Computed example of a mutant assay.
Amino acid sequence: MIEAAMIWNEPNNKSHWDPEIDPGWEKFGHMVKLAGRAIKEANPAIPRVLGGISPIDPTFIQNMAQRGAMDEIDVVAVHGFPLDWNLWKIDEWPAKIDEIRTVTDKPIWVSEVGISTFGAEEVQVFGLNRTAELLIGKAPRIHWYSLYDLPQAWGATTRHREAEGSSYYRHFYMGLLREDGSPKPSIEHFAKHAPAMGLCQWFHYEDHRLYDAVAWMKRLGVTYLRTGLSWADSFRPNALDWFDRQMEALADFDVTVTFCFTPEHRGIAPHHTSPPQVPEEFAEFCASMIRRYAPAKASVAA
């Protein structure tokens, strides 16, 4: 069920990793090494992807290399939202990937790219088509973020929430489908670019959209997907039942699974962005999910 395993999400973004606790990413680099080794031990055939970086910063990759983390990584991933949050233009996408190529010889995936319809739905149509022109053939994996708008009641995963102004509210309008499930104009354009372009869709615990999402993805011709299995959610009641349902529903796709989110009671600080108290526990969570959903095939003696 799993094509690749991604270790964390946007580690160089303070919305996902606390730089006050780990200002030089020493703890993060150590955690990546442990998780990478654990995933490889569970199944050596699964590519290990460094959590998609945002901003796209080659010095972060160099930092990870100096800490030995890149020795346990097979793929580097980047995230970009030039029409919403980044301080560069959409036409700079190829140059941004080339910046990372100067510091690593590993494959580079675009594990999140998207355009909000906060201002106008027509902007998303333009951005989707231009992104496809710039990235198809440039990156072996392009995960468009996302299939669904984020429900207003759920809240976006950022540090300062409403205090971020319009930047915060853009999070809620990244989908090809509106919150009520109705399609935006961009969805017909996306279908023209599938299967070369895949999707990134996060599913919340017991997400009511799961089966409708699968139906839409098949209708659109999607063959590969990025989603997540939350370490924090693993402590909820019946968590494995939910994980099983989610992964079974996605079995027809090539799935990159992102392992992230520190449980409050296992972090140095009680927050999902905190480095864990015991990084080996996160590594074991990653390995246990690989053993459950992508077990290594037993070798057959000659």
Rank of each mutant, 00 (worst) to 15 (best):
K33S: 12
K33N: 10
L34W: 05
A35Q: 06
A35N: 03
G36A: 12
R37H: 13
A38D: 09
I39F: 09
I39Y: 10
E41K: 12
E41T: 15
E41H: 11
A42H: 13
A42M: 12
N43A: 14
P44Q: 15
A45M: 13
P47D: 07
R48Q: 12
R48K: 14
R48Y: 06
V49Y: 12
L50I: 10
G51Q: 09
S54M: 11
S54H: 15
P55T: 09
P55S: 11
I56D: 03
I56H: 05
I56N: 04
D57K: 05
D57P: 00
P58Y: 11
P58V: 10
T59K: 08
I61C: 08
I61E: 07
Q62C: 07
Q62R: 12
N63V: 08
N63F: 02
N63S: 12
M64Y: 11
M64A: 11
M64K: 06
M64R: 07
Q66N: 14
Q66K: 14
A69C: 05
M70D: 08
M70V: 06
E72H: 14
D74N: 08
V75D: 09
V76D: 03
V76H: 06
V76C: 05
A77R: 05
A77E: 04
A77L: 03
V78D: 02
H79C: 06
P82D: 02
P82M: 02
L83F: 03
D84C: 00
D84I: 00
L87F: 08
W88T: 01
W88P: 00
K89V: 01
K89D: 03
K89P: 01
E92Q: 08
P94V: 03
A95V: 00
